[in-house]
Design a binder for these strands. Sequence first.
DNA 1: CTTTTTGTTGATTGACGAGTCAATAAACTT
DNA 2: AAGTTTATTGACTCGTCAATCAACAAAAAG
Lengths: 193, 193
Amino acid sequence: MPKLGMEPIRKEALVKATIVEIGRVGSLDVTVSQIAKRAGMSSALAHHYFGSKEEMFLAAMRHIMTLYGAEVRGALAASEGPEGRIRAILRASFSPGNFRREAVGAWLNFWVLAQTVPEAKRLLAIYQGRLQSNLVAALRPLAGARAEAIAESLGALIDGLYLREVLKSGAPDGAVAVGVALRHLDAELARGA
Amino acid sequence: MPKLGMEPIRKEALVKATIVEIGRVGSLDVTVSQIAKRAGMSSALAHHYFGSKEEMFLAAMRHIMTLYGAEVRGALAASEGPEGRIRAILRASFSPGNFRREAVGAWLNFWVLAQTVPEAKRLLAIYQGRLQSNLVAALRPLAGARAEAIAESLGALIDGLYLREVLKSGAPDGAVAVGVALRHLDAELARGA
DNA sequence: CTTTTTGTTGATTGACGAGTCAATAAACTT
DNA sequence: AAGTTTATTGACTCGTCAATCAACAAAAAG
């Protein structure tokens, strides 16, 4: 049955299964067997393609970040004006695709991973840097020298809203989160003016 | 050698050791043996006093929350006026005792725990509720009907600042965090006025 | 002084899980 | 057709760890 060119297909299936399982179990205590089973293959094959469980986690992290980055870029391209760009970033951050239970759970656990695995820390730092520079770029025309400071608190607020989503029961509501972030932004901008 | 009345002493030592080990390892993948060793006893004794590892985690969580709560109450008692009360809450939240690497790491991991262990979720909800009502009480005279909304975003911001501390290298700087939170607050209040 | 309660641990059990290996098979190369 | 590369898995190794147990020691109770 060996069809050739399976590698990318298998890897993608494993990455998605990893995210789903982390979200389902709620921690990084997922077994390779669980992941492999959900992806429809044996655990041996999972080890064959990724050398270790840690590599699977990192690949899953890159995947989530890639999705997030793409969504932000897309929203940014379709936006106009500084304020429009900020709204775009916020909407992308809390879009149904990113702001869903399993993705939020995955993020939380990647944060834990970052405490011990340097590569995970690096990836998370990249995410933070990109968010920060996107926000600063959009804020510069509106807030001048205060752009950095506002971007930092806005970034922390976004992360905090993600964190709090973990405790909520019921489906995530991105609109509410966007509203909270926008109110904060308005307040900051109003003060500067 | 069995001196009587060891139970509370042993339990306290275990709770502290649990927090230290979680902070050191950076995850909940700490063994009971590690914890027991740091607390100066055998793993069997740890199991004797707490029935399970999970109970140890929950006890550690209660301990951290108790410390935090006590510090907030103390700061609140020594404060004057609505604005003073808010400052007190923020200062307590980012005090050296609470805002230190191992405590921050422990918080993060408790959040993970809350995804699967109902009791952990309950405890975290209590913390959030207390923080919220403390903030609302202090904000009411300043912001009236907007107190709840501001308290919510301020609470999320605090959590976000904790979260981001995890990625930073170097010693935590509570003063900076308090500054960020206070700026946010000022902005919100200025708008309402 | 014997019985019970409290403190304490080394040794053991039992389960589970990451990673390896050998074997099998289909496809591609020469 | 023979040889190589890619796909795939069941079985196995080896280690780890939570939880239990049996046993011992000292204090308190009767």
